[in-house]
Simulated scan of single mutants.
Amino acid sequence: MDITIHSSFLPHNDHDTAIAFYRDVLGFEVRNDVGFNGMHWITVGPPGQNTSIVLYPPEATPGLTDDERKAITEMMAKGTFGSLLLATKDLDGTFERLQATDAEVVQEPTEQPYGVRDCAFRDPAGNMIRIQELR
């Protein structure tokens, strides 16, 4: 089989801050920005790669109850709903660049007991962004 990861989804609740974070802070390309009824779906991804992240408004998910939407919003704010794992060859340099922005630092570069060195941030919606060092 020839299967690749094309897109992954992360919830977002603010169009402008999402673009500012993923484009201006992480350096991703904005590949698509679709609006409908006041909501925006934004597709972003690293330049030169075919993998994308679709940032979507959680209130657009069909079939959710108001209680479920509230729970999702609360989990997003705590960083327990969505997450993204990125990788870089220069973890310290990447951490310094991110730390110099408004990104919320969760963990400085750390050698983990399970064999990776990584750091963690939250995006503006509260999603956990972990960045591992490629070795």
Rank of each mutant, 00 (worst) to 15 (best):
G48Y: 06
G45T: 15
P47T: 13
F21N: 01
I53G: 11
V34M: 10
E59T: 11
P46L: 11
I19N: 09
I53R: 12
E59A: 08
I53Q: 12
L55M: 11
N50Y: 13
P47S: 12
A60S: 03
P58Y: 13
N37W: 00
A18D: 09
N50L: 14
R31P: 09
G63P: 01
Q49P: 05
A18L: 06
D24G: 15
H40Q: 07
N37C: 00
I19K: 03
P62C: 00
R23S: 09
A60F: 02
T43G: 15
R31A: 06
P47A: 10
A20H: 13
W41N: 09
F28S: 04
T43C: 12
G63C: 00
M39V: 01
N32I: 03
R31N: 11
H40N: 14
I53T: 06
D24E: 14
D24R: 15
G38N: 00
A60V: 00
W41D: 06
V34R: 08
Y56I: 02
Y22K: 01
W41E: 08
G48Q: 08
R23P: 01
G35S: 02
Y22L: 04
T61M: 11
M39E: 10
P46W: 01
G48D: 03
E59D: 13
N32A: 13
V54Y: 05
F36W: 02
V54C: 10
L55G: 06
A18I: 15
P58L: 07
